[in-house]
């Protein structure tokens, strides 16, 4: 197996890892860096459980190769501390088993950063790429609406 060395900037820290060129970012985060907050729900881009931010934009880490991450800024759920969206998820009971939660929070956070006043349509466009099997989505919707100050302005 051919291996290559890679420098990734993750949650503000430079990390060197030895990987296969074919390893996805998700595999590297979990297996090489112990950042297991990003979840392997399908490895096929269908569920969003693996969502992280790359250069502040939302990305499914199962769909991106680790080598593509060089020179970017990667943020995982472990890099979010005390954000309003995390608090909103807790207060609104926006999770049950919690397996989809990191992905939803990362996606929501990226959305809030890019569109602080997103309207319903915009929120849907962003969040419909994640699956939650436990909740009826109502609580997730409440959580996100609670941090979007002036929707649609």
């Amino acid at each position: 197996m051919k291996l290559t060395s890679l420098m990734l900037n993750i949650n503000g820290e430079d990390r060197t890892v030895i990987v296969r060129p074919a390893d996805t970012l998700l595999e590297i985060l979990r297996e090489k860096l112990g950042l297991t907050g990003s979840k392997p729900g399908c490895l096929n881009g269908d569920c969003g459980a693996c969502t992280v931010m790359v250069n502040q934009r939302t990305m499914k880490s199962c769909l991106m190769l680790g080598v593509e991450g060089e020179g970017t800024e990667i943020t995982t759920i472990e890099g979010l501390k005390g954000t309003p969206i995390q608090q909103a998820f807790v207060e609104n009971f926006a999770f049950q088993c919690g397996y989809c939660t990191p992905g939803f929070i990362m996606n929501s956070q990226a959305l809030i950063q890019a569109h602080p006043n997103a309207d319903d349509e915009k929120i849907k466009e962003w969040l419909e790429s994640n699956i939650c099997r436990c909740t009826g989505y109502e609580e997730i919707e409440k959580a996100i609406m609670s941090v979007i100050k002036n929707p649609g302005t």
Binding site: R30, E31, K32, L33, G34, L35, T36, G37, S38, K39, P40, T76, I77, E78, L80, K81, Q86, Q87, F89, V90, E91, F93, F95, G98, Y99, T101, P102, I105
Partner: peptide, 25 residues
């Protein structure tokens, strides 16, 4: 009362560990 679930903080910070997480790497 709508008491917040005990494992809530772990679940919103990525610290909650499921089976596979415990053996990563």
């Amino acid at each position: 009362k709508s008491v917040i679930r005990k494992e809530a903080e772990d679940k919103v910070t990525g610290k909650a560990k499921y089976t596979d997480d415990k053996y990563a790497g």
